[in-house]
Amino acid sequence: MAEHIISRKTYTYVFLALLVLTGITTAVAFVDLGALNVVVALAIAVVKMLLVALVFMHVLYSRRLTQITVAGGLMWLAILLVLTMTDFVTRGWLGVPGT
C-alpha cells in the first residue's frame, strides 16, 4: 500500500496546536479549579495524545487493522483505569468498624 504523504502545512498546524495546548496546561496550573484541576489537565493531555497518534503517527491514514490495534491499546488502558477505580472510588463506602 502506498504511504500517505502528509503535507508540511498539516504538520506545522499540529505542532502549533501542541505548543498552544502545552501553554494552556501551564496556564491552567496557576488557576485553582478545585476538583476540575485533574480533569482539565487530563483532557488537554488526551487531545495532545490524539493529535500525535492520529497525525504524527499516521493512524488517521492507516489500514483498518492498524486503527483497530491502536484502539485496542486504548481500550486496555481503559480496562486498567476503570477496574482500578472500582477499588479507589468505593473504598470508603463501607467505613471502618468501630470508628
Binding site: W76, L83, T86, D87, T90, R91, L94
Partner: peptide, 22 residues
C-alpha cells in the same frame, strides 16, 4: 484474563465492592 486481577487482593484492603466485581 485482563478483567480479574483483583481476586489477588481480596484481603489487601481492596474495596469490598471492587472485590465483588472481580
Amino acid at each position: 484474563g485482563f478483567l480479574v486481577w483483583g481476586h489477588h487482593m481480596f484481603v489487601s484492603s481492596q474495596s469490598v465492592y471492587a472485590s465483588l466485581v472481580f
